[in-house]
Every structure is written in C-alpha cells, then in structure tokens.
C-alpha cells in the first residue's frame, strides 16, 4: 500500500495509514467531530427518556495536560489533547464518538497516540491494591479500563461493534492488564424500549455483564510511568474489515496481536436509519471513586477503498 502523504509531514510520519485517509485529527482547534455519546430520546426532546446508563458520558475536553506538581505537561504533537474524563463514581464511563459513513467496504484502520491516567490524589489517599515503593504508585491501580470500538451498520440493517478494551484493573481494583472483547452486542435503546433490559446508572454500556467479556493475547504492561502526573504517549493501531465484518490486527507499540479469531457479535435483529454507519468511539471507565482520564494526542482513520 502506498503512503497517502509524504513522510516529511511531522504529524503524519508517526502514523502508518492505509491508502485513503478519512480523517487526521490533531486537537489544536476544536474536538474535530469527537463528541459525547448520549442515548436516544423521544420526539419531545425529553432527556428523561434517555436510558439511565447512557445519559451521562461527559463532554470531551481539550487539555494541555496540566498537573498540580509540574504545571503544563503538554502533548505529543501540538497544543492540546482530547481528554475524556469520568466522574469520581465507581463504574462511570466517559466517551468520545466520531460519526462517519462508509463509501466502500474493506480494511479500516484507526490509529492514535494516547495516554491514560487516574486523577492525582493530593492531601488524601484512596484504597489501592498497589503500594508506593518509590517506583510503583497506588495510582497505577486506580485506573479501570479504556475501550476503542466501532458501531457499523450496512447491507440491509446488519449492525455490529468491533470492540477492544484494555482492562487495567478488574472491578475489585486488582491489576489485570488484559486486552478484552465482549461476546454480546451492546444493549441499545430499542432493546430497552422492547423490555429486554433496564440498566442502572454507571452500568458498563458496551457489555454490562462482566461474564460477557473474554481476554485475548497475553497480559501487557503499559508505560504508566510511576506517578499520575507523567504522560507517556502510546501508539495504537487497529485494523478491522468491513467486508468480512471481522477484526484483523491490533498493534500496541511493539506488540502486534492477531485478532482474526476474535469474534465480532452481530445484532440478531436489523436496524433502520443507519445505512453505511461507520462510528468509532473511545471510552474510559473508572472502577473506583476516582476520576479516570484518557488523553488522545491525535487520531487517524484510514481505509483501503
């Protein structure tokens, strides 16, 4: 595959796009279409009709990554990063979603440089499964999980989500550091309307039952770098195929993971108004009463059609 742009572009040269770039988002101006996800609502605009677990995913922010101890840390590429921030509420999720449509079928690649952190605790401590020893820090175990996922619908309403999650800790706050995927599709507002579920606030909207998640590949330690106020940017590259509705490959820095056997659950029923839907979302979920943050330096989405 030919490169889509000359590598002299310092912003682009750290990426590895497929032949056609759909978007290259650097957050020096606006959020570039990455917006808060919210559940659906009725014809009167009554937000009280939004599913309880999908009403509060928090607005993305533009951050220069400033902290109490060093001031402005800064980003990898520019002035600002896109920041997703949870509430300090166990199970709460923050999201940023980008909405496209497909002009073809085939390989789709999403790449990003990201960092993740729990909010610093200053003047007090919170429960943690990791003690401070001068190298490791309780904050390491106060980050829950981040997720990258799609929402795709085409070919007469066939809808599915490709999902990858890095689970840093389980819900008990114990370090797990595993890549995960769900074996069920995400519950939708129509499922709720049809009485199939009613989920509480802070339920895991991607797949609410922990037993519906499986691990893939081996445990992977990422570079959290000791304390909650150091930002080290990680490279993530994920390929899916919309022709076969399958996962292809995930790369995290130097770890390349074959995902061809990682299933993609398809909704059993069909959906309307979503023809050629191609959405991507990032989310971050806290497993304790502390804010969790996901910072995206930049994001690139490319395709081979």
């Amino acid at each position: 595959m030919e490169r889509a742009a000359p590598v002299i572009d310092a912003g682009l040269s750290k990426y590895d796009p497929l032949g056609r770039i759909l978007c290259f988002d650097r957050f020096d101006s606006t959020t570039h279409g990455w917006t808060e996800l919210i559940g659906n609502y009725d014809g009167s605009g009554d937000l009280g009709t939004v599913d309880e677990h999908m009403r509060d995913f928090r607005p993305p922010q533009l951050s220069n990554c400033s902290f109490f101890d060093v001031g402005t840390h800064g980003t990898l590429s520019g002035k600002y990063a896109l920041k997703l921030a949870t509430r300090p509420h166990r199970g709460h999720t923050a999201t940023g979603i980008r909405r496209l449509t497909m002009a073809g079928r085939g390989r789709v690649r999403i790449e990003t440089y990201f960092a993740f952190k729990a909010e610093a605790t200053v003047g007090h401590e919170l429960p943690a499964s990791v003690a401070w020893d001068g190298n490791r820090h309780p904050s390491e175990s106060q980050f829950g999980a981040f997720t990258v996922a799609t929402d795709i619908c085409a070919d007469n309403g066939v809808r599915y989500h490709n999902v990858i999650r890095y689970q840093n800790t389980n819900l008990a706050g114990e370090m797990t550091q595993r890549w995960m995927y769900p074996v069920v599709p995400e519950p939708t507002p129509r499922d709720h309307q049809e009485g199939k579920f009613a989920l509480p606030y802070a339920a895991d909207f991607t797949a609410p039952d922990p037993d519906d998640w499986r691990t893939f590949d081996e445990p992977l330690e990422l570079c959290v770098n000791e304390v909650p106020t150091k930002i080290n940017w990680h490279y993530l590259r994920w390929d899916i195929d919309t022709r076969t509705r399958k996962n292809v490959e995930l790369r995290l820095n130097d770890r390349v993971m074959d995902m061809s056997d990682v299933p993609v659950p398809v909704y059993p029923d069909r959906y309307s108004t979503l023809d050629n839907l191609l959405n991507f979302y990032f989310s971050v979920r806290t497993h304790a009463g502390i804010r969790n943050f996901l910072f995206l330096d930049s994001v690139l989405i490319s395709v081979d059609w």
Partner: peptide
Amino acid sequence: RSTMTAVLERSALVRDELATEPYELPWA
C-alpha cells in the same frame, strides 16, 4: 475563532449544593 459547547449537567437535581465536574478550557 474556535468555539465549543459542553453540556455539564442535563437534569441535575440540586437540594443543597452541587459543584459541576472540572472542565478544561485552556484554549479559550
């Protein structure tokens, strides 16, 4: 110019006191 709107609360019930979540606007 750049402009951006965040919905900090949609239907918050306040009986005593509420402080909204921290929101960063370093660019504004």
